[in-house]
Design a protein around this nucleic acid. Sequence first.
DNA 1: CATGAATGAGATTTCATTCAT
DNA 2: AATGAATGAAATCTCATTCAT
Lengths: 229, 229, 229, 229
Amino acid sequence: MKTDVTSIVEDPDLVEKRRHQIVVAATQLFSEQGFYKTTIKDIAKKAGVSAGLVYLYVREKEDVLLLVLLQVVEAYAREIPKAMENFTDPLERLMRAVEAYCRVVDGHRAATVLAYRSTKSLSPDRRELIQQRETETNDIIANAIVACMKAGLIRKLNVDVLTYQLVLVAHGWALKSWYFKSRLTLEEYIVDSLDILLAGVLTPVGQLHRAELRDRDARNDLGPRNSRA
Amino acid sequence: MKTDVTSIVEDPDLVEKRRHQIVVAATQLFSEQGFYKTTIKDIAKKAGVSAGLVYLYVREKEDVLLLVLLQVVEAYAREIPKAMENFTDPLERLMRAVEAYCRVVDGHRAATVLAYRSTKSLSPDRRELIQQRETETNDIIANAIVACMKAGLIRKLNVDVLTYQLVLVAHGWALKSWYFKSRLTLEEYIVDSLDILLAGVLTPVGQLHRAELRDRDARNDLGPRNSRA
Amino acid sequence: MKTDVTSIVEDPDLVEKRRHQIVVAATQLFSEQGFYKTTIKDIAKKAGVSAGLVYLYVREKEDVLLLVLLQVVEAYAREIPKAMENFTDPLERLMRAVEAYCRVVDGHRAATVLAYRSTKSLSPDRRELIQQRETETNDIIANAIVACMKAGLIRKLNVDVLTYQLVLVAHGWALKSWYFKSRLTLEEYIVDSLDILLAGVLTPVGQLHRAELRDRDARNDLGPRNSRA
Amino acid sequence: MKTDVTSIVEDPDLVEKRRHQIVVAATQLFSEQGFYKTTIKDIAKKAGVSAGLVYLYVREKEDVLLLVLLQVVEAYAREIPKAMENFTDPLERLMRAVEAYCRVVDGHRAATVLAYRSTKSLSPDRRELIQQRETETNDIIANAIVACMKAGLIRKLNVDVLTYQLVLVAHGWALKSWYFKSRLTLEEYIVDSLDILLAGVLTPVGQLHRAELRDRDARNDLGPRNSRA
DNA sequence: CATGAATGAGATTTCATTCAT
DNA sequence: AATGAATGAAATCTCATTCAT
């Protein structure tokens, strides 16, 4: 969770607060104009601080990008496990994970696209840091798939490929939002995507199990968000 | 095929030749270092010409990027129909299309990633040009899906979502090559990905039909590449 | 002893103490990295105070340099007369003066070099202040030479030139310490330098007189440091 | 003679010419205001070129300083041997060398002072380059002293110390010009300084020999510049 | 008195673009 | 058509200095 991005300022609360200001401003600007067309002065102005101040909280401009990207990948790493934690059924856990992933992406659409566009603008070590976090997130999905497989709900198949297909579902929502936005809601997108992919990978037992889950949710007023395994 | 990129030089053959030199050099450099870290001088040196010459064939640096990206999306628009043209069976056409897409992406891995990273570095009008071509390519896939649906091979579902899922399969090979390269061959990736997606979308009739296609290919020594519907 | 460098703080003892802290830190840093590469923060950190504090005792950064340089030239003005005060013989006074000069320089090697390098970094009025003190020191040497001349110990010659030659002997020890350090001790340097210069300027009477002084010192256990005229 | 300072521009004549422009402007500005207070824009303006141009001939600002300082130390290394080359008499060679040294210093007064002030502003490797050249120059003087010693003209003494005393005579003319300028001509300074130092180091034979040289010069109308051993 | 966060002016350096040759 | 030297605008980053606490 700790970054190597070091600050001249000591007070950790202040660092937190200032960095937040900077990251919020930078995320928007980077998304609109890209990393290189955004100047430190732009960021400072939008954040309501002086240009020099930025350098009290960051060593170089690239650190701002790192901070922005870390924010996203750490949102993934935080939100997805949280969405799964109250469920024990393997299939439900997998579906919750994908759903949560899509929702986090939706909440950070700009930054997700930014991650695709700008990770290579980072120096190798910073880039590795981001990719490592991303891999950790993917492992959560992969583990959920393996659990389904062990429970006989998903047929034997290449876990890496399915993992990436699910991940790309989530990322795709951000990457192609310019195309989807006028055609689908996020909920429809999630349901349709899962429909296609799960239909392709569930065993007959898995299909039955999925139908049961759907029935249970339909009986409860509570809706899927609060269901228990 | 026609670009708005105008050149001072008249002789169209020379323009063709010089632009090719420039695009080849630029593609490699943009992929390695990104658009902004690559200078016109870098490109000129790698292309074996002077910096000034570039400006005889291009009005601004961004035009070079446009030329590079056009090259990729036009490769898509050229190769995918070609891979389908000798086939009439709707399912086979769809599978050939996806396979061809993946192969073109593989042949332009660097440039495909570049498209994700750098399309936003273009001015709005140039960006639109690229996105329009991309949409055209997607339409080829979408039409193939619709054809399958009409033939009762694919069940009713959201065509846009499936289209994008298939497109993301192809792009994913480039985007995540750093992850896949050590784990899968391109062929395995294509087969596994189609396996998952088709299993999820084919109707019972479609499943049967797919099995037939597979049997036919297995009987021929020719292998799938030369089979006819 | 009085500087124009004014302080916001009233308590003179505190001013004294704080300035000492600052000067000690600054001397070392300026010597190692030069005036411009040394930041106020560097100085403050090494002095164990805050950056803001420095500005309670100094009006601008240049004042710190002035303080540092004043410290050296005032060490000259203090130490050299002290080394002469117990002697009345003109030749001995001159030799003591040069010897003392060399020793003070040795004790402030870094700051002496600094004076050569950085006096010009001062504003004109501050620079003049330093040069004036330096001239005062030189006058001490010049007067000692004139005394020897009047006593018939040194032949008629250009006093300014000899003065500067003697001064440069002292300064040279600091300026070229990178060259001398591995070849000579300070004592050897002083003896050899005086040997050369005095041999060149003493009258026959002066030569005899110098021999007498040397004999006297040799007879006393006391050694030259404590001898009386 | 060749520097590591590399230029983007190929044409060596142009490089020569531009660098000369730059060095002339920089020498004056560095001398007046010091290295750090002089901006690249100042230099460019005084040289009558654009700021960007400077960077076609130099990689960093520090390279300009290196170029300026090299110019001086190379003038030493060029002029001093030239002043000696037509003479074979060891004492005459030594005197010519010192005289030439003083004249070169006089011609580069500003840059000589700059060398004292600013050598430490160079990075270690560049600094070493300068100091090495300086040592080479000193070796010329040292060798001339040794030759006199072997010929029995100078008494046994520490060659390093005498070398530096003679070097400091030359440098002193620049370092203390603010003091000397109103009191002495360069010629008087040279004669008086040599008078003092040589009187102190010549053997009786050397003294006689020096007198002979002086007589010979006095007999010729030609004056010392054209005399032969 | 002391602190240290904040400011903002200013310097170096890069590079797209032009243009004389 | 081609070259490559020259320009000059713009961006990053540093740091002396101030000032609220």
